[in-house]
Computed example of a mutant assay.
Amino acid sequence: MHPHHHHDHDHDHGQCRKTALDRVESACARLGLRMTAPRRTVLAALLHDHVPMTAYELIDRIAATDKRPSPVSVYRALDFLIANGFVHRIESRNAFVVCSHEHEAHGNGAIFLLCEDCGVAVEAEATDLLTRIDGVARASGFEVKSAVLELRGLCAACRAKGAALAHGLDHDADAAE
């Protein structure tokens, strides 16, 4: 697991976590859903950074600061969080990440930009693309229940780091000649 070395929000990381927790808490209150302690614990662990985590990584993260939860309790919490649009499952990694958008405004779809170097997952705003995908499905008589599109590549920070390393290596090679 790689540390989150950059941030895609305008707020500092602590503010990002608070905003996400507040958003989920208010949605639960509005929808009459119970945000139990195990669900809150799993959500808080996922909010540690923007790198998707497997259920067992979540268990280890929680166990580092609290009583070790059972896999069943973590999976139940994840099921609730996913069913209500608060968390997405990144299929290719069998991992989970907190939804960074208002669920009602975003529908049942998500587009993730997944960095192959640092592991960060950024949820992209692409409502127009999700609307087009839904239209294509409806034209075929298909009802989309969930759509998670995953795009893999390098985030801006890793691209910059790679360019800096390449430039440094080119400079070192030039100096050696």
Rank of each mutant, 00 (worst) to 15 (best):
C155Q: 01
D60M: 07
L149D: 00
H11N: 15
K161F: 02
G141H: 10
F142V: 11
D117E: 10
S73F: 00
S100A: 13
A139W: 03
A175N: 12
G162L: 09
A124S: 07
A55R: 15
R30D: 10
Y56E: 15
H7A: 08
E91S: 08
K145G: 08
Y56N: 15
H2Q: 11
L149Q: 03
A110H: 02
H101M: 09
F86M: 14
R68G: 02
A64D: 08
N84D: 12
F112G: 01
H13G: 11
F80N: 04
A126N: 00
G107F: 00
A95T: 08
L154C: 06
A157S: 13
A64Q: 10
C115D: 05
A147M: 06
T36W: 05
A124Q: 07
V148E: 05
M53W: 14
E150W: 00
R40C: 01
E104W: 06
M53S: 15
D22L: 14
I82R: 09
R159Y: 05
T36V: 00
D117C: 02
H101L: 09
P69T: 06
V120N: 01
T41Q: 04
R132H: 10
D134E: 11
F96G: 00
N84F: 03
L149T: 07
S92A: 12
C99M: 01
G32Y: 07
G32Q: 07
A121Y: 02
R152K: 10
R40L: 06
P3T: 10
L43K: 03
E123V: 01
Y56V: 13
E177D: 15
A105G: 09
H167R: 12
T131K: 14
T127V: 12
L81T: 07
R138D: 07
A20K: 04
G162N: 12
E143H: 08
V87N: 07
H167T: 07
